[in-house]
């Protein structure tokens, strides 16, 4: 089986017609389903948040069989994720896509669990601390997308589990509640 780094690619990745958006409805639905799963799995394993439609992305082409997805196919697969709430278009032109391999709500729960397990309640952390700090190293919070993190923190704030401290001079901070 072929692999990208430590990621094992599914068999269909080596089957050329999967790189052409299929004209027949049932076949296309199956094709989209398989690509959706692959994209989510890959982004989760590599902790990728943003896919640029016109940029290089390891899944968009397969050198071994010399096939690559055209823009129409890329947009079809990502749109399918967006319609399921597993992704969001960042721009109106549908050129950049945020992949939510965890939903915002799931991220909020993850953060809460992480804070509890590591005894970070009542601490004040900056956004940069969370994304690049020593406490979160090795966890899924390391290098988390800033937008995703902010949305998740807002959910926690609404539930009274965190307080976001905006500051004009320094990085935004957050204080978790016990």
């Amino acid at each position: 089986m072929q692999s990208l780094g430590d990621f094992k690619l599914p068999d269909f990745f080596n089957y050329p017609p999967y790189f052409t958006l299929q004209p027949v409805r049932e076949t296309k639905e199956k094709q989209i389903l398989m690509w959706k799963e692959l994209i989510l799995k890959y982004c989760k394993s590599q902790k990728i948040f943003i896919i640029g439609l016109e940029e290089e992305f390891p899944l968009f082409s397969n050198q071994k069989i010399q096939r690559s997805l055209n823009n129409e196919a890329r947009e079809a697969f990502l749109s399918a994720l967006v319609s399921e709430g597993r992704a969001e278009w960042i721009d109106r032109g549908h050129k950049r896509c945020l992949i939510l391999w965890r939903s915002i709500q799931e991220w909020a729960n993850y953060i809460l669990d992480f804070v509890r397990e590591n005894g970070l309640e009542t601490d004040v952390m900056t956004i940069e601390d969370i994304r690049c700090g020593i406490e979160t190293r090795g966890s899924d919070l390391e290098r988390i997308d800033r937008g995703v993190l902010m949305q998740a923190l807002k959910i926690l704030e609404q539930k009274g589990k965190a307080a976001i401290i905006e500051s004009s001079s320094a990085d935004t901070g957050v204080k978790f509640a016990a």
Binding site: Y15, P16, P17, Y18, F19, T20, Q22, P23, V24, E26, T27, Q31, Q66, R67, S68
Partner: peptide, 14 residues
Amino acid sequence: LLEEGLSMIDNGHV
């Protein structure tokens, strides 16, 4: 054959 789902089309060859 394509419509019956027995084949898939591939337009990606160089």
